[in-house]
Design a protein around this nucleic acid. Structure first.
Lengths: 143, 143
DNA sequence: CCTCCTGAGTTGTCTTTTCAAACCAACTCC
DNA sequence: GGAGTTGGTTTGAAAAGACAACTCAGGAGG
C-alpha cells in the first residue's frame, strides 16, 4: 500500500531532516554565515553543508555573495523560507508549553508590546482553528 | 561553544525525528493502531515501534487498551499531543503553498464552511504575528 | 618571505540508524 | 487444526550521521 500523499509529508521531505529547521532558525535570527550556524546549532560541518545545499536547491534559502575576493556567501531566506516562520512559531510555542522546563530561554514579543501567544485562526471567519473545528476531506470529493 | 538553548530545539528533540510527525498525523486522522500507522506512513515497523515508544514516554501519546485477551492497545493523543495540531496545520499550509505541485491531496474545511487558510495572530491584540512584528529577546532581559 | 588565521567547505573513518523481510506470540475464524 | 489478524521484536545489509583532520584561498603579522 502506498503511503498517504499529503503536504505534511512533502513539507517534511524538505525541512524534516535533522538540523534543517535549526539551521533555518539561525537564519531567522540573522546568523546567516556557515560558521555561525555551525556554532549555534551544534551540527557537524559536513551535515550542515549538505542541509544548506538542499535548502538552497529547494528554494528555501538562497546564497548571497557578500565578498568577491575571496567569494563568500551568506544564506538568506527566500519567500518560501520566510513563510516557514509560522511553523517555527508554533513549534516554539509547543516546546515552551510542553517540553522546556524552567524559565524559557527565549521570549518573542509582538509589536503590540505583549509577549506573543500565537493563536491560529481561520482567515475567512476569524474564529480559532481547533482540531475539532476542522473537517478533513480528500481533495477529489467535491462539496 | 554550546549550541543555543531553545524551545524549538527541545520540541524537535521529541517530534523532530523522521516519521514521528507522520505517525502523529495518522493519529490525528483517527488511525490509532500500529498497522494502520505503518500502512499510511510507509515507515518500517521497527522504526515506528521505536518512535511510538518515544512519543508515549514523552507524554505526547498514550496507549489505551481496547482488548484484554490478548492485550491490544491504541495510541491516543494526550493534551500535549493535541496541542501539536497547530504545528501540523502550519506545516500543511506551507507544504500546500510551496512544495506540493498540482491539486492538493487533502483539504481541511473550517466549521465556518470555508477551506481553511490558517493565520497566526497575537492572542493579546488580535493582529497577525509576522516575522517583522516580533522582537526576539533572551529571557533574562527584563522589559 | 614565511607563518598563522578565518571562512567555507570536503574527505576519510567510524558509529548509528534505517530498511526490509522474517520471526514470534496470542488469539479468532472457518 | 490450519490460516489470518494484530502488534510487535530480531536480524543483517545499506544508508546516513558524527567527528576530526584536511584543503584552499585570501589576508594579517612579523
Amino acid at each position: 500500500m502506498a503511503p498517504r500523499s499529503c503536504s505534511i509529508a512533502n513539507a517534511l521531505e524538505i525541512v524534516g531532516e535533522r538540523w534543517s529547521l535549526l539551521a533555518l532558525r539561525e537564519v531567522f535570527f540573522g546568523n546567516t554565515r556557515f560558521d555561525q550556524i555551525v556554532e549555534n546549532t551544534g551540527a557537524s560541518r559536513d551535515v550542515l553543508a549538505a542541509r544548506l545545499k538542499k535548502l538552497v536547491a529547494a528554494d528555501v534559502l538562497e546564497k548571497v555573495q557578500y565578498s568577491s575576493q575571496p567569494p563568500r556567501y551568506e544564506y538568506h531566506l527566500t519567500e518560501s523560507g520566510r513563510a516557514l516562520h509560522n511553523v517555527m512559531l508554533m513549534l516554539k510555542e509547543w516546546g515552551d508549553t510542553y517540553v522546556t522546563e524552567g524559565p524559557l530561554p527565549l521570549v518573542w514579543e509582538h509589536s503590540c508590546g505583549a509577549v506573543l501567544e500565537p493563536r491560529v485562526v481561520c482567515t475567512s471567519c476569524g474564529e480559532e482553528a481547533t482540531f475539532d473545528s476542522l473537517h478533513r476531506a480528500p481533495a477529489s470529493a467535491a462539496s
